[in-house]
Amino acid sequence: MKKIFILLVLSVISASVASAQKLGYTDMEYITSKMPEYQLAQAEMKKFSVKWGKEIQDKFGEVDRLQRAYMAEEVLLTDDLKRKRQAEIKSKETEAQEYNSKIFGMEGLMFQKKKELMKPVLERVQQAVNKVCSQRRIDIMFDKSSDIGMLYTNPRHDYTDYIIEELGLNEKADSDKNKAVGSAPQAQVGSAAESSNPKQKSTTNKRK
Score class of each variant (00 low, 15 high):
residue 111 F to G: 04
residue 111 F to Y: 15
residue 111 F to K: 09
residue 113 K to H: 10
residue 113 K to W: 01
residue 113 K to E: 11
residue 114 K to Y: 15
residue 115 K to N: 14
residue 115 K to D: 12
residue 116 E to A: 05
residue 118 M to H: 13
residue 119 K to H: 14
residue 119 K to R: 12
residue 119 K to Q: 14
residue 120 P to D: 13
residue 120 P to H: 11
residue 120 P to W: 04
residue 122 L to N: 12
residue 122 L to V: 08
residue 123 E to P: 06
residue 124 R to F: 07
residue 124 R to K: 13
residue 124 R to Q: 07
residue 125 V to H: 00
residue 125 V to M: 10
residue 126 Q to Y: 08
residue 126 Q to E: 15
residue 127 Q to N: 15
residue 128 A to S: 06
residue 129 V to F: 11
residue 131 K to D: 10
residue 132 V to P: 03
residue 132 V to A: 03
residue 134 S to F: 11
residue 134 S to L: 10
residue 135 Q to T: 04
residue 135 Q to M: 01
residue 135 Q to K: 03
residue 137 R to E: 14
residue 139 D to P: 02
residue 140 I to Y: 04
residue 140 I to E: 00
residue 143 D to T: 03
residue 145 S to F: 02
residue 145 S to K: 11
residue 146 S to A: 14
residue 148 I to P: 00
residue 149 G to F: 04
residue 149 G to P: 08
residue 149 G to W: 09
residue 150 M to E: 03
residue 150 M to Y: 09
residue 151 L to Q: 06
residue 151 L to G: 13
residue 152 Y to I: 10
residue 153 T to Q: 14
residue 154 N to Q: 14
residue 154 N to T: 12
residue 155 P to C: 03
residue 155 P to M: 10
residue 155 P to G: 01
residue 156 R to E: 13
residue 156 R to Y: 08
residue 158 D to Y: 08
residue 159 Y to M: 08
residue 160 T to Q: 01
residue 161 D to W: 14
residue 161 D to P: 05
residue 161 D to I: 12
residue 162 Y to D: 08
residue 162 Y to F: 12
residue 163 I to G: 02
residue 164 I to Q: 01
